[in-house]
Design a protein around this nucleic acid. Structure first.
Length: 886
RNA sequence: GCGGACGUGGCGGAACGGUAGACGCAACGGACUUAAAAUCCGUUGGGGGAAACCCCGUGAGGGUUCGAUUCCCUCCGUCCGCACCA
């Protein structure tokens, strides 16, 4: 703030005497300008989206924010990118929908309630008000009439209705599942909230608990969600791969082993899943999960097995815990009969490395070809039978040491020690085993997915109530739609741990809608990811009586460009894709994929500062003096760390509000788009922001100077300089259009700099009137329109100065003159043996033969040839000529 | 372990297989100024040369090509996602 004020004063002081003309020009003042134009846009409802037909639509959406209370620079970057696109598409004649809302449920509101005694509702709505004001100060072209907040009953009532429809359609399931339970706070914790086995707030050792939870059956769509990824051409490859891995399809075989006790009496069979059925003759044991039904049952009569189960429960699921964990198990006293080796019995263990959640929670172990199985076999003295060997190996002597032999897709490997499989490749053996298992009727080929159903129950107050009533007589009863919304009660207390809804008897105790007897409400609320899984659909008709309005949703959906952080690559984006399909099934929407194009922007990072004592210092308190960073107040020298993700704990944060006040929204918008490609992390630097600020002033000055040139009506008779400048102008326009469409904002900005430089140079031309004032005007006008999406306020100010009609925000995008995009001459590089030796400017489209003779005459080429003979000449028309010397 | 991305000046980064370093930041020189700041004009990959120009140069090594930052292989490094997934 102080820095800038000082600058302004000097700026005026220096322009005296000879520069009186410049002094007459007012410096661009963002403080008065920006609020003025924001008001005009608002008053004239410039950005309200209309469903008028006859115009193509364009739906631009950025991931809506959680109302934490203040916007951060990541928001600024995200919303600026979307805004540039929205403004550009509007100028290109599209009906643009560019809405904003609030992902307003969630734990921070409850934590604030616990810590500060404020009501989550008040805390949330105050935060929304503060952030709305901040976002508006950015000058975003948002249709604020469509604003929604997920915590508003007018939003979540529809979510409840959708849920009831999902329930009726069989897309909802209630089942017992294992959760992370914090015994002090008495709540379920998400995996992310468990840090080294302890609750992130209470510090209590987290327990595994089994609770009845509501699940959305996303696994019904596993295959569809996976297959449809191929059609998402305008999604980043990276995100598609991440989702693909997350869904985790594997082709395998599910079959059962006959079981028997040690004495040989039969026991119900054991289902297993495998993708390596080719190794069936290498099987030397079977293993089941500690949580497998078989283990549970046997634990009731065996102290040893019960103890093993407890031991596994206590073991963390963290990465390190898994890394360190020995492969352990306990013999269950049972044997499995090998399907192809009569009389051969495999001991059955419960083992700590078998996941209940994957496949059947049971496997056959083949130590020779699976590292985990091998370690387990070594620990328990089990046989290791190699059954796959490199083709070159001698089957008689091939052995396995400490490393299992993993051949994967290697066609070189062949089966050994495997009866009817001997000599086959892995693929052939898999096929043969699958065929025989199916023929025996003991199993079948099966696709298995890693994806699991989505547990949406949270034992939390600040979330959307799940519209269900539990009746002792009728069981689970959906709340009738006519009773919606189930509104969160306001009068709740946070003085005790646990879910306040559970203690709110007046709310909890209801009559069963079916039988009329006393019943209880479901007190769990939805995971907040449910709220964000359909908000993009609600924006199409945010005040409709039904969750969606068919006409509006058919018109606007899908989102044409979705922009957000890559951290949502899996959860939010996968849930939304599932929700859209489930909403299609229940008649709320008529498409599968909500986001036609996805863009994941990088983070904003900043270097860190700390004192020698190790205390973190805010960038605002650090100043550079003589190339060293010191504390602004104490003068203490600071240790500068590399740029990293902004975090409150390391204090490497900048507050957008302060920067916007100091430099203006246009400058900040310009900065976050400049230099760095939008998908990469951008480093926030004070000098970069200052540079952007200087450019706003330069542009302002440039437009002023152009308008001071005497008007000249015609573009008909032009000097060569004028024509050349017009080419530059129109080529820049063409290039910037393509760059914005491709979201290559950094390149668009570089080209705007280039055009500004060209116009500045033309203005400064020593030859009087070398460039026609009409051309300068044309250039300035196009320049203003090109930067209008990025710096909309300055653009309006310049638009007014140029005496252009209406608002820049409503002006159509200028059309580049195709005639000016084609050059009639071209400068081509001339190489000798691939090394550049000269360049030559030629008429475009010159025949290769002529190019060849011209090239050979060049001094530099002759010198490089040095008397050697020319073998051939490669001529790429209008691009390059390469003389190849023998 | 599996999957993926990336590696170019002091820095951020440009470059349909075709003149490597556009554009910006920083730095340096100059003009203006009593002075500084701001502004404007220049220089700025390394080396050689008075200059014309020449040599080297996109993590390392190889390959394909008339020509490779770009395509292929191997290696090194950094980052990201998933991970006891049978």
């Amino acid at each position: 703030m102080t820095k800038l004020a000082t600058r302004c004063k000097y700026w005026y002081a220096s322009h005296n005497g000879a520069k009186a003309r410049v002094m007459a020009m007012e410096r661009y003042n963002h403080r008065t300008s920006e609020s003025h134009w924001q008001k005009r846009w608002n008053d004239e409802r410039v950005f309200e989206a209309k469903e008028t037909f006859g115009k193509p639509k364009h739906y631009v959406l950025e991931m809506f924010p959680y109302p934490s209370g203040r916007i951060h620079v990541g928001h600024v970057r995200n919303y600026t990118m979307g805004d540039v696109l929205a403004r550009y598409m509007r100028a290109r004649g599209h009906n643009v929908l560019h809405p904003m809302g609030w992902d307003a449920f969630g734990m921070p509101a409850e934590n604030a309630a616990i810590e500060k005694g404020v009501h989550p509702r008040n805390w949330t709505y105050e935060n929304i008000a503060a952030m709305r004001r901040q976002l508006k100060s950015m000058g975003l072209s948002i249709d604020w009439t469509r604003e929604i907040a997920t915590c508003d009953p007018s939003y979540y009532r529809h979510e409840q209705e959708i849920f009831l429809d999902f329930l009726a359609a069989g897309l909802v399931e209630r089942k017992i599942s294992q959760v992370n339970w914090d015994p002090i706070d008495q709540t379920v914790l998400a995996n992310e909230q468990v840090i080294e086995g302890r609750g992130w707030r209470s510090g209590a050792l987290v327990e595994k608990r089994e609770l009845a939870q509501w699940f959305l059956k996303i696994t019904d769509y596993s295959d569809e969600l996976l297959a449809a990824l191929d059609g998402l051409h305008r999604w980043p490859e990276k995100v598609r791969l991440m989702q693909q891995n997350w869904i985790g399809r594997s082709e395998g075989l599910r079959f059962h082993f006959e079981l028997e006790t040690e004495q040989g009496s039969p026991v119900p069979p054991l289902q297993v899943f495998t993708t390596r059925h080719d190794t069936i003759f290498g099987a030397t044991f079977c293993a089941v999960s500690p949580d497998h039904a078989l283990t549970r049952e046997l634990a009731r009569s065996s102290l040893e097995i019960a103890a093993f189960r407890r031991e596994c429960e206590a073991l963390g699921t963290s990465e390190e815990a898994i890394e360190r964990a020995e492969k352990k198990g306990v013999f269950l006293g049972l044997y499995a009969r090998h399907p192809f080796r009569p009389g051969f019995r495999l001991p059955v263990y419960a083992a700590n490395f078998i996941l209940m959640a994957y496949g059947e929670g049971a496997i056959f172990g083949c130590p020779a070809h699976d590292q985990r199985d091998l370690e387990f076999a070594h620990n328990y003295g089990l046989d290791v039978i190699p059954v796959v060997a490199p083709a070159a190996a001698d089957p008689a002597t091939f052995t396995i040491g400490d490393e299992a032999f993993l051949d994967k897709d290697d066609a070189q490997a062949v089966l050994i020690n495997s009866d009817f499989l001997n000599g086959m490749t892995v693929a052939q053996a898999k096929e043969e085993v699958a065929r025989r298992i199916e023929k025996k009727g003991i199993g079948q080929r099966k696709l298995n997915y890693r994806l699991r159903d989505w547990g949406v129950s949270r034992q939390r107050y600040w979330g959307c109530p799940i519209p269900i009533i539990h009746c002792p007589a009728c069981g689970i009863v959906p709340v009738p739609k006519s009773d919606l919304p189930v509104v969160l009660p306001d009068d709740v207390t946070f003085d005790q741990p646990g879910n306040p809804l559970d203690r709110h008897l007046a709310w909890k105790q209801v009559k069963c809608p079916r039988c009329g007897n006393a019943a209880q409400r479901e007190t769990d609320t939805f995971d907040t990811f449910v709220d964000s899984s359909w908000y993009f659909a609600r924006f199409c008709a945010p005040r409709a009586d039904r969750p969606t309005d068919p006409a509006a949703i058919d018109y606007w959906m899908p989102v044409d460009q979705y922009i957000g952080g890559v951290e949502h690559a899996i959860l939010h984006l996968l849930y939304s894709r599932f929700f859209t399909r489930a909403m299609r099934r229940t008649g709320h929407i008529r498409l599968d994929e909500p986001f036609a194009s996805l863009f994941t922007q990088g983070m904003v990072i900043h270097s860190t500062f700390r004192t020698p004592a190790g205390e973190w210092v805010l960038p605002a308190d650090a100043v550079e003096r003589n190339g060293r960073w010191v504390h602004a107040e104490t003068g203490e020298q600071l240790i500068v760390g590399p740029a990293e993700k902004m975090s409150k704990s390391k204090k490497n944060v900048v507050d957008p509000e302060v920067i916007i006040d100091q430099y203006g929204a246009d400058t900040v918008r310009w900065f976050v788009l400049s230099d760095t490609p939008p998908e990469r992390d951008i480093e926030w630097t004070e000098s970069g922001v200052a540079g952007a600020w200087r450019f706003t002033q330069r542009l302002w000055k440039l437009v002023n100077e152009v308008t001071e040139r005497p008007a000249e009506p015609s573009l008909n008779v032009l000097s060569p300089q004028s024509t050349a400048l017009r080419r530059t102008i129109h080529q820049a326009l063409h290039a910037v259009s393509l760059d914005i469409e491709g979201l290559r904002f950094n390149r668009a900005i570089a080209r705007i700099y280039e055009l500004a430089n060209a116009l500045t140079a033309a203005l400064a031309s020593p030859v009087k009137d070398a460039v026609s004032p009409a051309v300068l005007r044309e250039g300035a006008t196009i320049l203003v329109q090109m930067f209008a999406p990025m710096m909309p306020h300055l653009a309006e100010e310049a638009w007014r100065l140029l005496k252009m009609p209406g608002l820049a925000a409503q002006a159509p995008w200028p059309a580049a003159d195709p005639a000016l995009l084609v050059e009639d001459t071209v400068t081509i590089a001339v190489q000798v043996n691939g090394k550049r030796r000269d360049e030559v400017t030629l008429k475009k489209g010159l025949p290769a033969a002529e190019v060849e003779s011209i090239v050979l005459e060049l001094d530099n080429v002759r010198r490089a040839l040095d008397g050697r003979s020319v073998r051939k000449i490669i001529v790429v028309p209008d691009r390059i000529a390469n003389v190849v010397v023998g």
